[in-house]
Design a protein around this nucleic acid. Sequence first.
DNA 1: ATCCTATATAGGAAATATCTTATATGCCTG
DNA 2: CAGGCATATAAGATATTTCCTATATAGGAT
Lengths: 111, 111
Amino acid sequence: MPDCAHMISAPLRALSNSKRLTILRWLRDPTSHFPPQRDGDLVVDGVCVGFITKKIGLSQPAVTEHMQILADAGLVSSKKIRNWVFYKLDDEQVRTFLAALSETLEIPKPR
Amino acid sequence: MPDCAHMISAPLRALSNSKRLTILRWLRDPTSHFPPQRDGDLVVDGVCVGFITKKIGLSQPAVTEHMQILADAGLVSSKKIRNWVFYKLDDEQVRTFLAALSETLEIPKPR
DNA sequence: ATCCTATATAGGAAATATCTTATATGCCTG
DNA sequence: CAGGCATATAAGATATTTCCTATATAGGAT
């Protein structure tokens, strides 16, 4: 396995902001935090920017930027449907990141 | 279990800086990255500020600040011996943090 | 006491992050 | 095509982070 240091930097920076961490917690379990959507399923498609904006109380451009940072880090994926953009936690990538972080921080196994 | 959100924010901010992440990787396995110390064992006591400063190529005050951020986040512990200060990865707290982060990011189990 | 070494603190400069308002783009409806 | 809605981009203000130099503190040796 190659040195995966740079692979965890972007997610760590993305997670270092408390607003983004809050959003990720919402996306982890969207039906508990958002009302049903007409044009896209909360779980299947993700949560639209407008819902996140309303709930977090920031301007819409600020939320867009936060979501792009999360997407660039690979922690969420986005899907455009009509003129909505739905963001969804990327379970696979989250697990990969968590594994890489453990690998980076935990004491190396003796051999 | 209480909401442990704020418990992971400080470590995440501490980890979001690449210099600090590099230092943590060194501290994870100090004997592979630093020469033996006269007045404190690399593994038992930790690594002194001077060694880290020399290796990372920043000013000593910058390193001191980085180490304080890591210590405030609970990721490292410090031990003063004579006029040295040794920093050491806190395995227990690192594991606690990793578990809390997984708890925060992973899909809640159905029940 | 004086000097040398190791680390911490103070102050401030420069870079980066966060956020807002204004505007652009793109899709849908009538 | 005109208008409305959802999101993205642009520009810039403010806040925070990162880093340096200068200085303080503290222990050990001469």
